[in-house]
Design a protein around this nucleic acid. Structure first.
Lengths: 240, 240
DNA sequence: CATGTTTCTGCGGGTTCCCGCAAGCCTAAT
DNA sequence: ATTAGGCTTGCGGGAACCCGCAGAAACATG
């Protein structure tokens, strides 16, 4: 069994290397890649079926890399190894995992014990392992308490990109009013209101801009998600 | 000479510890803090004058911590040690550094040699050391090519927070029209226009929302800057 | 002082946004 | 079949936005 490590920070990379060797004495060679781009190539050439992947890398996002890898070989086992449990990441990962695939999501701050356990569970036992904190996030995320449906999330991204209602309607094949209704729901779930703190002056907040920041502050959105959405938008614009 | 290390990632922390010992054999004890909060406390109790500080930590931002430390003892020497050279960080640091203080900004990706050199230059020679990439950013930032004046930057933050023109005018003591003029400049510098890609449909972009995303994508804004601006805004709202 | 340059300000209009109201569709349950 | 609750859509109006035009104020320069 070979293992592929995709991680841009050299310190973390060598730490992972060490831990993999300890946790899986039976494993063969350990390949290393320092960004998603390179990770995809190595996964293809070495037919790696066991991958430890960082999210948030310079050249190419971990989620992007995982997606193309899984598209080619859906039975690949991937352990995501991340600094943060942002909802944007969790959502991004759970959106791309193929049916029945074994994967894991552990935080970099977990203990060595847990990391080793996760490595063995996923690579040997073929079981999913999700860190407690991350799972908590998932629960909250997909429940309806302040949780967003996929279509709402889509439109949240659209306004984050700066699209007009009209353009969103075109893109998502909805009427203008429906888009605005969705925005209404988003505003209420995000608890953004036109707080006229002092009655004398009018609204203090532009709701659509405010919603985006609140979403960022709540880690519903982050840079990676934005970047991905932006390239998708550009694609759509080209395709008219 | 004592040194204080403020860094939340244990791997990086121990690496720094090692490098400091190697680069500064003459130094005494090395204290460690794992977030900004703790860093401030340790700096105060140990009267540390030599600090290596990570930006981007959970409990309290490196910039925030540095500001309060410098406010108490402006001659403290701080080496910032960061993953990124985002303009938002560079701007944030250069905004708080006291006159004549020795400081440094090096990326985590630099070689050990350079790190050691930076440590000696700042802590022994009392010289400023700014990484090449960061300096390039500084040049571009404070030149007028797509560079923002401080007042423009202020207002960019305000719309990023979701404030209305009216509210911004109140806050910055400007007329409504002046705020809108500034926005005009911001839009043009960010090159956001109402690209009516296809003549049939109207504007595809809401300029103010679009400007914020473009700024994020260009790393003019980032999560830390947003968070800081948000607390300042809440403060202002309270103070009426 | 006269002059030009830059910034600030008010006015007015066209467009977009925010949202209450109400009428239509669909699914599900009584 | 009827009723109820949920989406979706249209209409309409008030508020906020985007922005051209032009005068007023602030500042520098000769």
């Amino acid at each position: 069994m070979d293992v592929l490590i995709v991680e841009d920070d050299p310190l973390h990379r060598s730490y992972l290397h060490e831990q993999v060797k300890l946790a899986l004495p039976e494993c063969g060679t350990i390949h290393e890649a320092e960004n998603g781009q390179q990770g995809e190539v190595l996964a293809r050439t070495h037919r790696s079926a066991h991958i430890v992947m960082d999210l948030q890398m310079n050249a190419r996002n971990g989620i992007e890399a995982a997606r193309t890898i899984w598209r080619e070989r859906p039975d690949t086992r991937i352990l995501f190894w991340s600094n943060y449990a942002d909802e944007a990441y969790v959502r991004g990962v759970s959106r791309i995992v193929p049916n029945g695939a074994a994967y894991g999501y552990v935080l970099k701050s977990t203990s060595e014990e847990r990391l080793k356990l996760a490595l063995r569970s996923i690579f040997i036992e073929n079981q999913c392992v999700i860190d407690n904190e991350v799972r908590g996030m998932q629960q909250r995320s997909f429940a309806q308490t302040s949780g967003f449906s996929d279509s709402e999330y889509e439109i949240l991204m659209d306004i984050a990109l700066g699209m007009t209602d009209r353009a969103i309607a075109d893109r998502r094949h909805l009427s203008l009013r429906s888009v605005q209704n969705r925005l209404q729901q988003i505003y209420s779930k995000l608890e953004v209101h036109q707080t006229t703190d002092h009655p004398r002056n009018a609204a203090a907040f532009n709701l659509r801009a405010r919603a985006v920041t609140v979403a960022m502050l709540r880690k519903l959105l982050n840079y990676g998600a934005l970047e991905k959405a932006e390239t998708e938008l550009q694609q759509w614009l080209r395709g008219h």
